[in-house]
């Protein structure tokens, strides 16, 4: 915050609460956090503590019961166009890759680009570039069932990057991977952050995965209980 022209933080969450089932289930109990531009934050905590819920709110897939969320300085409860936001501001990566099984690798990336303003040729070019970035150039024509778990997750990341979002929201992206594949995915996150300056919020159970981040936020029962710089991996 050294000068007034600085970009606002990537994510600002103010006392957000979220309950389900008419208030019977309190998934988030007043979460406040800030994530800086280009920062990589890991969100950890026991099952059911509200990690995914928070991620969904940030992706504008759901709305908070109370509280405010600003992404790049904009209040996302008053978005003029949610689709635009989900397409251009955030890139989503799920635990299960959620790719379309009948489309080839490159088509799975292109499917995210319909109507994004690029020409057909530009879309194809960008998709090829992204596959190259996630080291899947040689697998362009393969459909997801023919890819390994790690490759699928890398493809999902390429799709999340399809429209150049500034923030990647990943929910247990390594949860279904063996450790070697998980490492490949983490390297990829590292690289895309270095190359593109994207902000990353990564939900994980795994301490080792969390250690790859700049900062670890620990949640329990819908609250943040601890925030710490991650120990240098060692």
């Amino acid at each position: 915050m050294s000068d007034g022209a600085a970009r606002p933080p990537a994510v600002q969450v103010f006392d957000v609460k979220k309950s389900f089932e008419h208030g019977l289930v309190k998934a988030l109990n007043g979460v406040t956090l800030t994530i800086g531009q280009g920062e990589w934050v890991a969100l950890v905590g026991p099952s059911g503590c509200g990690k995914s819920t928070l991620l969904h709110l940030l992706a504008a897939l759901d709305t908070p019961t109370s509280g405010r969320i600003l992404v790049n300085g904009q209040d996302i409860s008053s978005l003029p166009n949610q689709n635009r936001y989900r397409r251009f501001e955030v890139g989503l990566v799920f635990q299960l890759h959620n790719l379309l099984p009948n489309l080839t690798a490159i088509q799975n990336v292109e499917v995210a680009m319909f109507g994004n303003g690029l020409s057909h040729g530009e879309q194809g070019e960008r998709a090829r570039g992204l596959l190259e970035a996630v080291s899947l150039s040689h697998r362009q024509k393969v459909r997801p069932p023919g890819l390994s778990g790690g490759e699928r997750q890398r493809l999902a990341i390429a799709r999340a990057l399809a429209n150049n979002p500034s923030i990647i929201l990943a929910d247990e992206p390594t949860g279904a991977l063996d450790s070697a594949s998980a490492e490949g995915v983490l390297d990829l996150f590292q690289r895309i952050r270095a190359e593109r300056g994207v902000t990353i919020l990564l939900v994980t159970h795994d301490r080792e995965v969390a250690a790859a981040a700049d900062r670890i936020i620990q949640m329990r029962d819908g609250r943040i209980v601890e925030t710490a710089a991650s120990a240098p991996a060692g």
């Binding site: 992706a59 689709n83 989900r86 799920f94 379309l100 319909f114 109507g115 429209n163």
Partner: peptide, 16 residues
Amino acid sequence: TREFGVLRAIGWSRMR
């Protein structure tokens, strides 16, 4: 269903 949910989550509009 799931496929359409994913497509909506990555920015497809209802119209699309």
